Amino acid sequence: MFHKINFPSCVNQLERIVSFQRKLLNFACSSSASLPITESQLKTEFGDEIGEWLWEKLWTKRKSGKKAQSKFHKALEKLIRYIERHSTMSAKIMDAFDHDIQFHKHLNDPNFNFKYRGELSLTVQKVVKALLTAFYTDLLASGFPSAIHGQTQKFNRDKFISSFWSANSKLEVCPACDGRRSPKIENKVYSDADHFFPKSIYPFLSVHYANLVPLCLDCNRSMKGDRDPIDDPSKEPLVNTFHPYANPAISQVDVIVSRNQVGKRQVKIEDKAGMPSRRVASLNRVFKLEKQWLDHLDYVVKSTVEDVIEFRRRLTRRRLTLTLDDLKDDLEDKLTGNLTKLGEKHYYVMQCSYLHYTLTNNQELTELLAESTK
């Protein structure tokens, strides 16, 4: 992830939801779970209020008015049925869950590996993923009751997104691509809640506060999707990522505009720690930033030319001629001002990179001056 962001103010609620998620998983993996699932069984296990709410979530209404098992219901039953046949897997599943949800405390540990992928068979992964994915899509989408998260109002996906943007009120761009942040209409921000580590690959982190980040729709749906930011799970997986909350890229990379051998502009992201860089390669693989920003560079150049044309007109009205020194001073002022607005204006990363390149390349500066006279 590129920009520095703050944790949302709802961390405590999400931690309590993860605790409930663990309790649900433990219930499915324990001998106390039996089929068919009954409302009284859930109330005994989770208490009357949560048990009644959970029972309602196991069903969905058809057009005919009849109730049918929800995806969440089917996934819960499938895991219970699997554990009935493979009871020895219960402890392994719970151990992997307890281990993996502590990932955020090991971001600088080169030896940390996720147990879900490393120690559970593909069959176990499949039945666990079905339940915990449904936990996010079915339960968080509709909202958890206060008995689970401890607040007076129902907590859902929209509450998380609102909490995130409230904690990052100065950030006016998408944290990943530096483009326009999603629109806010009537106090609702229409952005996606991205799983940095995709829930399809790391379902234990489906509602983990350190794994959820609102992104623009293009980044989440068209660019990132389910791409894994970890390039090799067996070799220092976490230290080779730019984690959105703890290890953003913005202070650790240089975004460089230049021209290739045939004179075309290009954009490169270089790791300040040295190249080649696995974490920069992963950043590009997941979000395609170099390609996104190269596509936007033409707009930045045109916008800069328009600014220079206007600057020339102002000087002309004063009967002055625009010189290279004048242009350089103006661009230096713009760069200084733009650097203070990174994260507040969309695509200022590209603007700053282009201005820096122009100021350090006399040919580019001369061409910009000439372009403003056409």
Rank of each mutant, 00 (worst) to 15 (best):
F2Q: 10
N6P: 00
I17K: 05
V18M: 15
F20L: 09
L24P: 03
A28V: 10
A28P: 09
S32Q: 12
P36C: 09
S40D: 15
K43V: 10
G47S: 06
G51C: 02
E52H: 00
K57F: 00
K57C: 10
R62F: 00
S64W: 03
G65R: 06
K66E: 13
K67P: 03
K67L: 14
H73S: 13
K78N: 15
I83V: 15
E84I: 08
R85W: 04
S87H: 12
T88W: 09
S90H: 04
A91P: 01
K92G: 01
I101Q: 02
F103M: 02
K105H: 14
H106R: 09
L107P: 01
F112E: 14
K115E: 15
S121Q: 07
S121C: 06
K126I: 00
K126W: 00
V127N: 07
L132A: 09
T133M: 12
A134K: 05
G143I: 08
F144W: 14
I148E: 11
G150F: 04
Q151R: 10
Q153N: 14
K154Y: 03
N156W: 03
I161M: 04
F164E: 02
W165D: 05
N168F: 03
S169N: 07
K170V: 00
L171H: 03
V173E: 04
C174S: 03
G179S: 13
R180E: 12
R181E: 07
N187W: 05
N187V: 09
N187I: 07
V189P: 02
S191M: 03
D192K: 02
A193H: 03
D194I: 06
F196Q: 05
K199H: 12
V207H: 08
H208Y: 09
P214Q: 05
L215N: 08
R221N: 12
R221P: 00
D226F: 07
D231F: 00
N240P: 09
N240V: 11
F242D: 09
Y245H: 11
A246F: 14
P248T: 08
P248G: 02
V253D: 06
N260K: 06
Q266H: 01
I269N: 04
K272V: 04
K272F: 06
S277H: 08
R279V: 06
F287Q: 06
K288N: 12
E290R: 08
Q292V: 14
Y299F: 10
V301P: 02
D307K: 13
E310W: 01
R314G: 14
R314P: 00
R317Q: 11
D326N: 15
D330F: 15
E332I: 01
E332P: 00
T336D: 12
L339D: 09
K341I: 01
H346L: 04
V349Q: 06
Q351C: 02
Q351K: 12
T360H: 15
N361W: 06
N361S: 11
L365E: 07
